[in-house]
């Protein structure tokens, strides 16, 4: 990060296993990680919402970005955060992750502050947030997902490489493990980021525009990966730009424009009125498209996606 960036860490503590008494990643070896979902957390804490945001206000210097947001997001769903540019979507994710300090309010992840739940959460930043002309290969990037459980000073070993390779395989690009990252296409770079998050073996995934700028094949692959995650009980919260696919891809939607406009199941929340309130009057064609999709979805629950070409 540049010296001028206004972000600060909420917490500077090291992520040692001892840091999190309830954390599922108590062991250093990724291959022996207990599945977070089989942990006691599910049995005695399953009523905790994945994310609880209370009275959250965030500002960059004097510029307010989020105003008084209250939010409660359930576990086990695919959740879209939708809103116009500058609505604070990424800021919300970063505040949940403790990358930005709020002015007021708090965030709880599975009923506890983020720093206690770190090992339960995977993060996929915006693809443009890093310099892809960096001297490293796909496997090394994915391996970063294991650094949290490795802790300080320890080096990744053979088991970790194997694990990272497995994650690359899950996103369908195991053969590109040794490829320099600048030689990957945009879709492949996005897959590398997703594989890195998979390596985190999290219970909740926060993704900043995972579908931005990827080809149709990658979009389908990412979607089926998200559905995979949901079928194993994971929660995904993704910033999403394409209003036309919200109803089709996601279960739950958060409509945001500095203030929280609405949040809830797609069927009841993602309607014209709420979209108008989120985007102002600028939305006519897109709203109609979304409405049509919703209608189609009501008629045929398993809507086939008819892409062009």
């Amino acid at each position: 990060m540049s010296l001028s960036s206004p972000t600060t860490e909420a917490d500077d503590r090291t992520p040692t296993p001892a840091d999190d008494h309830h954390g599922p990643l108590a062991s250093g070896q990724p291959s022996t990680h207990p599945n977070p979902l089989q942990h006691d957390a599910l049995t005695d804490r399953h009523r905790e919402p994945a994310i609880e945001v209370h009275d959250l206000t965030v500002a960059y210097q004097t510029q307010p970005v989020l105003w008084d947001v209250d939010l409660c997001l359930p576990e086990g769903k695919l959740i879209a955060i939708v809103g116009p540019n500058g609505a604070g979507k990424s800021t919300l994710l970063k505040t949940i992750l403790g990358l930005i300090q709020p002015i007021t309010g708090w965030v709880k992840v599975f009923g506890a502050p983020y720093r206690r739940r770190r090992s339960w959460v995977g993060y996929v930043p915006q693809r443009e947030s890093v310099d892809w002309d960096f001297p490293t290969n796909a496997l090394d990037v994915v391996m970063m997902g294991l650094y949290g459980s490795l802790g300080w000073l320890r080096r990744p070993g053979k088991a970790h490489r194997h694990k990272a390779l497995e994650c690359l395989d899950r996103v369908g690009i195991a053969e590109l493990a040794d490829r320099q990252i600048s030689q990957l296409s945009g879709g492949q770079q996005q897959r590398v980021f997703l594989a890195r998050a998979l390596a985190q073996e999290a219970r909740l995934y926060l993704m900043d525009e995972p579908f931005a700028g990827v080809d149709a094949t990658t979009e389908r692959a990412i979607l089926s990966l998200l559905q995979d995650l949901r079928s194993t009980g994971r929660t995904v919260i993704a910033v999403h730009h394409d209003l036309q696919t919200v109803a089709e891809y996601f279960d739950h939607v958060v409509l945001l424009n500095m203030r929280l406009v609405a949040a809830g199941p797609v069927e009841t929340t993602f309607n014209t009125e709420n979209l108008q309130r989120t985007y102002g009057g600028r939305l006519t064609v897109l709203t109609q498209a979304a409405e049509a999709l919703l209608k189609a979805r009501a008629e045929a629950p398993k809507l086939q996606r008819g892409g062009p070409g």
Partner: peptide, 26 residues
């Protein structure tokens, strides 16, 4: 040599490192 892994993460993807709980500012 000691902090190679952490420095690598700092210069490649600072925010991801911070999300893992590494004190990137330090």
């Amino acid at each position: 040599v000691l902090f190679y892994k952490e420095l690598h993460m700092l210069i490649f993807d600072r925010e991801f490192g911070a999300s893992l709980g590494f004190p990137m500012r330090r």
